[in-house]
């Protein structure tokens, strides 16, 4: 019996032995068997979303007494010192930024997997 090869050599030989399989019409055969695509036009979905948004905004405006609380809030804000407004804006930016980073990391496997790496 000959000497046994090591794991690394075996894995490399296995990878090299796995030849690329030419498509040769495979993709076309799969595509021919796919169920028909949804025919709903994109503009219709966009219009529905826009319509619902406008309707929701209109209802909120009416229920809030013609947006009175917004005007009152703006007047109160204008009385605040400028440094307080800057701190408030900066804080809002930090919260939104942190939220965006968390969502991006959760939705990106390549980034998320970095946390699992062992050094």
């Amino acid at each position: 019996m000959n000497a046994m090869i090591d794991d690394e050599t075996l894995d490399r030989q296995l990878r090299e032995a796995a030849l690329y399989i030419d498509d040769e019409g495979f993709t076309e055969r799969v595509m021919a068997r796919l169920p028909a695509a949804r025919r709903e036009p994109r503009w219709l979905r966009a219009m529905i979303l826009l319509g619902l948004t406008l309707l929701g905004s209109g209802i909120a405006y009416l229920l809030s007494g013609g947006g009175r609380f917004v005007r009152e809030g703006m007047i109160q804000l204008s009385d605040f010192p400028i440094w307080l407004l800057l701190v408030f804006a900066f804080g809002c930016g930090l919260v939104v930024g942190a939220f965006a980073v968390i969502v991006a990391v959760r939705k990106t496997p390549e980034v998320r997997d970095i946390a699992r790496l062992r050094f």
């Binding site: 796995a18 030849l19 690329y20 399989i21 030419d22 498509d23 495979f26 993709t27 799969v30 595509m31 796919l34 695509a37 949804r38």
Partner: peptide
């Protein structure tokens, strides 16, 4: 529901899946 995009995914992965 872009079937051309799905076709590209099939083209990319057909060799490894078939292998």
């Amino acid at each position: 529901d872009d079937q051309h995009a799905f076709g590209e995914l099939v083209r990319r992965h057909q060799s490894s899946v078939r292998g």
